[in-house]
Amino acid sequence: MVIRKAMVIRVRPEKLAEYRALHAKPFPGVIAALKAANVSNYSIFLKDDLLFGYLEYSGSDWAADMAKVAADPETQRWWQLTDPCQTPLESAAPGEWWADMEPLFYMA
């Protein structure tokens, strides 16, 4: 079974060029860690200062798989570069970075 996840965060306008450059050449290890964690079809879209992320997850334990991604040294290095470019939405839950979005419609 595939779980579709969507999330949103703001990009700092003064960091947009840096954020674009980072995502033009993502670290291969980050991509490998995500794939090993059962993530596929991951996309990030930009509108104004909003980043919209979409991914599909085919594993059976999201929390465990995301913990493996978070423990990956190359992913940690990636986040050190990308996190300063972002700011959570005001409506994000406490401790939430990318805010999960509620699915309302899906056409297969």
Rank of each mutant, 00 (worst) to 15 (best):
Q86I: 03
T82I: 10
L50M: 07
T87K: 11
L89D: 07
W79S: 02
A108L: 13
A70H: 07
A93W: 12
T82C: 02
W78Y: 06
T87Y: 11
E102W: 12
P73I: 06
R20M: 04
P73G: 03
A37F: 09
D83P: 07
G59P: 05
F105L: 09
M101G: 09
P94D: 04
R77G: 02
L46Y: 08
F52N: 01
W78N: 05
A64F: 03
R20C: 02
A99F: 08
S43V: 12
T87N: 07
T75S: 15
R20K: 13
M1L: 14
Q86R: 03
D65Y: 15
E74L: 12
N38S: 10
E74S: 10
S43P: 02
F105Y: 04
A17P: 02
F105V: 06
R20P: 01
T87G: 06
D49A: 15
D48C: 04
S43E: 13
V39R: 02
W78E: 01
Q80P: 10
Y19N: 06
I3L: 08
P103L: 14
R20Q: 09
E90M: 07
Q86P: 01
L50T: 05
Y54I: 11
I44E: 05
F45Q: 04
S91P: 08
L104P: 07
M66A: 04
Q80N: 14
V11W: 14
D65R: 15
A71W: 03
A108W: 15
P73D: 01
K25V: 13
D65Q: 14
L16Q: 06
Y42L: 12
P73L: 11
R4N: 11
A32I: 07
F105S: 01
F52W: 10
G53V: 07
Y42N: 03
Y57F: 10
D65I: 14
Y57E: 02
L16K: 04
W97Y: 00
P28H: 05
V2A: 06
A17C: 07
L46A: 12
I9W: 01
E102D: 09
A63L: 12
M1A: 14
A6L: 11
F45P: 00
G29V: 09
K25L: 14
G53L: 14
